[in-house]
Amino acid sequence: MTGAQTLFDGLLVLLLVILAWVLLASKDLFRAIVLFISFGLLLALAWLRLKAPDIALAEAIIGAGITGALLLVGLGRLGSAVRCRPLPVRTTPLQRLSAPLLVGLLLPSIAAVVLVELFTLPIVASGQIKLVAAHLEHAGVDHPVTAVLLNFRGYDTFLEMGVLLLAVLSIWSLDRARHPFARDQIPAALLTLQRLLLPLLILVAGYILQRGAQGPGGAFQAGALLAAGIILAALCGHRLPPGHQGLLLRLALSCGFTTFLLAAAVTLARSGVPLLYPEHLAGSLILLIEIAATFSIAFLLAAAMAGGHPVPEAKPTAIDERKSA
């Protein structure tokens, strides 16, 4: 029993390491990205083996799914060819030696030291499990990971919403959104898939969100699923109406962060400690923050996927109308 499990774990780790090497070394970047997506799915399996189903869900949706889609869009814009190789520069023999020395000798030796250090760590260590379990009954939720994410270390999630918001702001300041398909080029299979998947994605996202209080699931996974739905709808030619691209979109993007900020301000005023929820309100407060965060994460991830600030579509629609008229 344990022998077979250890064999499985060993093979999985070996496969992950080989896959990482092969995908990074593969000549064709498209192949590399497809392998990266399968790497993400195998990694999700590894998370399950490490008894972390929350991370497995997030890895499958975000790590493999959305990151993979992002990379494919990026490949479409950049191209696979290496343009501008470094020019050969006159160097001394010692300088020429330094790069292979660094990569070939220093990296493996640091890796070896870290690996040896791993084996000197205590075999059994319970970390913070007992501490979390002791405070779980006051947390307002029954699932330890959700309790850590939204109560005990709520500031982590709060600041992470800030990081997401900042990322989208910097993306907006660098480029404008581009759509992969023109309206008349959308594949019919994609439209059918969207009709089947979109309601299912919304339903599953809702389930995962409310499930987070008792078991694996929560705002991240639900938000990422909703984001996948929005991305799918955008691929199928659905656009935000021009009137909704201004304040409404910005409100949707920032509502997770602002809800957290409000909760922090109110708790600071009440008890002097930000994000220390009163025990009888903790459950409802967490649910409220999670709903806002889910909504926000969905729009933030989809905005990151669009690759730039929204372009007012007034002109193209006017042309479309003239065409159809």
Binding site: I55, G63, I129, V132, V148, D156, L166
Partner: peptide, 19 residues
């Protein structure tokens, strides 16, 4: 049981690495 604190931090980390 796997320690929930690193689990929560890695969940945050996955979203940050997407950013």
């Amino acid at each position: 049981v796997t320690d929930p604190v690193p689990q929560a931090m890695v969940l945050t980390g996955i979203v940050v690495s997407l950013c």
